[in-house]
Structure formats: structure tokens, C-alpha cells
């Protein structure tokens, strides 16, 4: 590596750090909101009310079958087209690329996670539901105490994959001007004329984060399943 490049990269280090921090923020916030949304949608998806179940199914299908980029553009550019949106209380949020990205990512990961959660919920043995009912539990209590904890545990390995996919999807935030890791890398690559080195460096940071996530999920799996140790 030649030294002007090295000094250029050193000068860009604070930018890389702030870009990584923004990536972490986007991913963490979207995953958190997405998980809440997904749990709700998964429950609706399994509802015995046909219209409710179909609505959940439609949402999942649409958001899983279209590119994330379309979803981001629809929210960032598309919604601003309507005067009703521009005059609404939500406009301060929808005007910001940051919140548009969060909304798009949340809706996207929510759809994928809902299917993962559905698998988890369906894997809970029915005998346990019957036992809980026999003990007098119903509705929310049954979900909170019996179904959801086991569903989460069951869904954890698949959810780990979804976390990684969300991390990779967060790179698209750079297309709507957010300077997260990929955005920073692109700007520095354009300035230093050394795209290969800069993008490889950004790739290494992503790999590092993926590795940490994989290890974290693995640890969580072991902690939640004492029997499998």
C-alpha cells in the first residue's frame, strides 16, 4: 500500500467510524421496530378471521417480493408527492431521509420476520396450548407466557440470518443520501480515486459486524436452550 493512500485513509478514519455508527443505528432501530411489527403480523397471520389473515398475508407477500430499493423510493420520493402528506403531522418525519430509511427497513424486515415468527409459533406443540387453557390461561396471557417465549427460541437461528440481511440492506440508505458505511466509502472512493482499497476496507468492516452478529446469535441460542448445551 502506498503511503499517500494510507494517509488519505487515516484522514478518512473519523468518517468511517461515524458511518459505521450510523449503520449500527439504522439496523438496530429497524430491527427493534420490525420485531414488534412482525410479532403482531405473525399473530394476525394465524388469526382465524379470514380477512385479517389475508391482509397480513398480503403485506408479507408484497414486501418480500419487491426490491427494498422500490420500497425506499416509494416512501422517500413517493409519499412527498401528496399535499395531504406534506401537510400532515408526519411530514417532519417523512421529510428526513433518516426516518424514511427507518420506516422502509422496518416494514421490510417486519415482513420477513413475520414469516420467521409464524414458523416459530407453529412449532409450539399444541398440547402446551391445551394444557395452558386447562390451567385457565387465555388470550394474551397464553401468548405471553407459553407461545411467544418458545416461538422466539425456535425462531432464533432463522432470525440471525435476517439480522445479517438487514445489515446488508442498510447499505441502500446511502442511495437516499445517508452517509452510513457504504455512503462514506463511496464518497471517499470518489475523492481518493482508490475505489478498490476503500470498498475492500468497508467490506471488511461489514464482515466484522456480520461475524459479531453470528457469534452473538449463537451465544443467545445456547443460553436460551440449556438442554442443547
Amino acid at each position: 500500500m502506498n503511503s499517500p493512500l494510507l494517509s488519505a485513509l487515516m484522514a478518512a478514519l473519523p468518517q468511517f467510524v461515524s458511518g459505521t455508527w450510523l449503520t449500527v443505528q439504522l439496523v438496530a432501530l429497524s430491527l427493534l421496530l420490525g420485531l414488534v411489527l412482525a410479532t403482531l403480523v405473525a399473530v394476525l397471520r394465524l388469526s382465524h378471521l379470514t380477512p385479517v389473515s389475508w391482509a397480513a398475508r398480503g403485506y408479507i407477500h408484497v414486501f418480500r417480493s419487491t426490491p427494498l430499493l422500490v420500497q425506499i423510493f416509494l416512501i422517500y420520493y413517493g409519499l412527498g408527492q401528496f399535499d395531504a402528506v406534506r401537510q400532515s403531522v408526519l411530514w417532519p418525519l417523512l421529510r428526513e431521509p433518516y426516518w424514511c430509511a427507518i420506516i422502509a427497513f422496518t416494514l421490510n424486515t417486519g415482513a420477513y420476520t413475520a414469516e420467521i415468527m409464524r414458523g416459530g409459533i407453529e412449532a409450539v406443540p399444541h398440547g402446551q396450548v391445551e394444557a395452558a387453557r386447562a390451567c385457565g390461561m387465555n388470550g394474551a396471557l397464553l401468548f405471553r407466557r407459553i407461545i411467544l417465549p418458545q416461538a422466539f427460541r425456535q425462531a432464533l437461528p432463522a432470525y440471525g440470518n435476517e439480522i445479517i440481511l438487514m445489515l446488508q440492506g442498510s447499505a441502500l440508505a446511502s442511495i437516499i443520501t445517508l452517509m452510513e458505511l457504504t455512503g462514506v466509502a463511496k464518497a471517499i472512493a470518489a475523492r481518493t480515486f482508490q475505489p478498490i482499497e476503500v470498498f475492500c476496507l468497508a467490506g471488511a468492516v461489514y464482515l466484522g459486524m456480520s461475524f459479531v452478529i453470528t457469534r452473538g446469535v449463537h451465544l443467545a441460542e445456547r443460553r436460551l436452550n440449556p438442554a442443547r448445551k
Partner: peptide, 20 residues
């Protein structure tokens, strides 16, 4: 490596890196 980094980054790397 390829499954651990964003597709967008792979595209940028091959496109801008390829050009350079």
C-alpha cells in the same frame, strides 16, 4: 465474504474498482 457484505458494495467494488 460475498454473503457477509452488502450486494451494493459488491456492485460498487466491481464497477468503480473495475473502471479504475
Amino acid at each position: 465474504i460475498v454473503r457477509g457484505v452488502p450486494s451494493l458494495l459488491v456492485i460498487y467494488l466491481l464497477f468503480f474498482g473495475g473502471n479504475s
